[in-house]
Design a protein around this nucleic acid. Structure first.
Lengths: 214, 214
DNA sequence: AGGCAGCGTAGACGGTGTCTACCGGCGGTG
DNA sequence: CACCGCCGGTAGACACCGTCTACGCTGCCT
């Protein structure tokens, strides 16, 4: 009756999510996940024929988590598309920085290559949110919306990765990724209207550390 | 002088480079490299105390290769900074697409974290080339040069990764990364002079475009 | 009651990174 | 010349990994 009592499949994924969040990508071995889930090392095979299948399931959970955070951010953000887009970018960067291991896992090319991530169902909805906002802000001389949105996403993604990995701080000497986020948005969508002085997102304790997937 | 006759250390790195280029990241195991170099599995330890050290040396070779390609591109490109920057971006994207395994290795965060990549010596020169061009093209209202260059690099990097990984083609429906590259450069540096011919947006008429000369 | 299918256990196999003992030349020194 | 130590590579052991296979247990259905 407890959440722990649900099927082994869900328990394995939950253990994997917990592991990758806490220990990073290298810790997510099949046997360690099985150990944490309290089963023998052969048990996962019943549900995930291969290690990659289990990793893909974990990564999908990561996409779901990120999507949920973005949607929550979208609820709290106002109605101004530009402010909403800024909030979206902030959420993306924060997610990558706070959950490096998961972020890395989500974009492992060997996982993406197998198609088991089902990107159409996981990351496309997220991209649709961004595309929608971009469409509202697009100026006539800009590139077509899909290209503009794609380029902006790539910019966000690149900042997230290069910053979290430490390359951008080293190269630019910056100490805050906010400058880069602002620069990216200004570049792709034109300078922000001056009126909104978005305060630094006041962060309470990170609510993510209590992961209890339903 | 002969490459094959030099020390084992260089042979190991060469074998690793060859392996990661040909078979991808997962093939670059210590033992396989030793096998290809014709030595026992314990031999590498003499020069690389740890697997990560050897991988870092291989990745450094990748940075050197990329840098060399960029410099060659810079020699062949004309004197127009914008054209040179476009060529740089093209080289970056082509490198990532052609050498996915190496590109992935070069930006593995567990390698970057150890500091053994010596980014200061490997990737900073590359970034300096970009920064230099950006400085020439920067408009007064743009972000400071380091931030602008960093944001542009991140954009390039994101396009390279998300495109080569297949996410961007899926999300945008595009079949050519050139559109994204152009969009990124236009966004960060303003529209390219006189060569800006964007195909009209598919949806809806755009009255302001009716006056443009053919 | 008997059979059976679903689930998890347990062991084996080959592969991996790391550690350690060993060993064959080689040069320097008595 | 004999010796010794060091350098560079070998080879085996260890623990861990992913995968495969044979084996039990348990509970449901006929």
């Amino acid at each position: 009756m407890d959440a722990d009592e649900t099927g082994l499949r869900a328990r394995l994924v939950a253990a994997g999510v917990d592991l990758v969040l806490r220990e990073g990508q290298s810790a997510v071995s099949l046997r360690e996940i099985a150990r944490r889930a309290g089963v023998s090392h052969g048990a996962p095979r019943r549900y995930f024929p291969t290690h990659v299948d289990l990793l893909s399931a974990i990564a999908r959970e990561g996409f779901a988590d990120l999507t949920a955070r973005v949607e929550e951010t979208m609820r709290d953000a106002g109605s101004d598309p530009r402010a909403r887009l800024t909030a979206l970018g902030r959420t993306y960067l924060d997610f990558a920085a706070a959950h490096r291991g998961m972020f890395e896992l989500m974009f492992r090319h060997d996982l993406l290559a197998t198609g088991r991530l089902r990107l159409r169902e996981t990351s496309l909805p997220l991209f649709a949110v961004l595309t929608d906002l971009v469409a509202q802000l697009r100026r006539p001389t800009d590139a077509p919306t899909p290209v503009l949105a794609g380029a902006l996403w790539a910019n966000l993604h690149g900042i997230a990765q290069l910053w979290a990995w430490g390359s951008l701080p080293l190269a630019t000497g910056a100490t805050d990724d906010g400058d880069l986020l602002r620069a990216a948005l200004d570049a792709h969508l034109g300078p922000a209207p001056e009126r909104t002085v978005h305060p630094p997102q006041t962060e309470g304790p990170c609510p993510c550390c209590t992961t209890s997937p339903s």
